[in-house]
Design a protein around this nucleic acid. Sequence first.
DNA 1: CGGGTTTGACCGGCGC
DNA 2: GCGCCGGTCAAACCCG
Length: 474
Amino acid sequence: MSSSSMEASLNMEKPMFSFFEVKDEPKIKNINHFHDDHTLASKISPQIVLDLSAKGEMGQVREENQKLKHKLSVVLNDYKSLQMHFNDYFQQEVTKSSEKQAHGQEAGDGNELVSLSLGTVSSCKHKSDGTKKVNSFSKSKQDSDEDDQELKLGLGCEFDSTPTRVDLNNVKNDERTHTVEPPVHGLKTERSDDNELLDQLPLKKARVSVKVVCDTQTMNDGCQWRKYGQKIAKGNPCPRAYYRCTLSPSCPVRKHVQRCAENRSVLITTYEGTHNHPLSVSATAMASTTSAAASMLKSTSSTSQLGLTTTATSTTSTTTFASHHGTGYNSIAPQYPFYHLPKTTISTNQSHPTITLDLTSNPHFSRSNSSTFTMTPRYSSSTCLNFSSPSSTLSSSIESNYKNINTIPFSYHAKQTPSHDIFKNMTSSTSQQQHSADTIAAATKALTSNQSFRSALAASMASLVRNVGGGSKI
DNA sequence: CGGGTTTGACCGGCGC
DNA sequence: GCGCCGGTCAAACCCG
């Protein structure tokens, strides 16, 4: 090996040394050695001395390199061994969870995992796809060992082509590659019989209606909408306005807004579709609310019928993983405790499975034994309180950071923090005409001043960084 | 001038 | 087949 090639080799090895934080001792030793040799240098040619010292230095470095390579191979072997054990463990968990869920759905109880997706038919089928659910579950479980009574807060987009077994190395890639909402056709083949309603309506997207008391023309949900039509619907003198999401040109999400015929102060906003782009925090809040509702729609669909009214409790045993559509931003959602939805109505009007969240009356939120806070506070006329104004600087300012965190920081372990107090404070304002900007500012202040919230947010960020960034596989 | 809104026309599903 | 109705399109219009 020539000296130049050796130098090249050394240059290549150097990063590894620094990676393993090899101390400078060899170098120091070499320097001393160099000095010793240098005393001879006065008698011998300086060039020869340099060659000798360099060769000696390289020899020691090579020796260290060999040791480190050996250590590295040992570490890699340990890592592979651990990974195999890890996979085996998860496969066992998969089996257990599948059995649990199969029994849980039949029995109507089950674990309290909720998929939060803005319900689409394509995602509905996952309800019966036990394996996928478990995949999602197990993946999220990496971040938390809590296995029950938790809620996945995602922005609804669920895909059906995830691997049928736990392959931790592939899951992440799968999520990232699913950028297009799968076609709704042919879904029936994969769905189980317990989802009769949606089986009967395989081509219709689930809808989520939100009824709020609102003085403004539309409810500010953090998204950006463009009006594309208006109609006078039968039986309601108030016109219905049609909007589509303009945050992304290809976003399929639409909503229509209509005032209640009986009570003009009540605004009925119906969402349909799933965002295929990152959302601001405020928009995520809305999406998560509707997602939870959509999930409930799915989970209760087997018993739903026209006019069925229920208070949303932990009725769902759905554990489908909700990842943000096509972006992977929400590839791993931390698990959160379940919270209760407000008064909820499920119907199949117009052949669309629709769930309505009635936020116009005091919802009497209750807390389950296991925790949780009520995510959906009562809306007042100052609607923009909960979901910021589209024009708010909050949304835009958060947007950039939020692109890395699509998991909603709106909900977190309530065991740690009575976060509903935040909302109580936020919603305690009785000023019906309070400007949204003021409200947003207050909300921002309330959130950012809450240490626990920040901690939860940091944990959420860390979780995503671990799983989305850096390419780490476990 | 570009982007959003308005509004009449059009289309497709559904019931009779 | 026909009419009703919800939903969408697109040209005209408006506004900053």
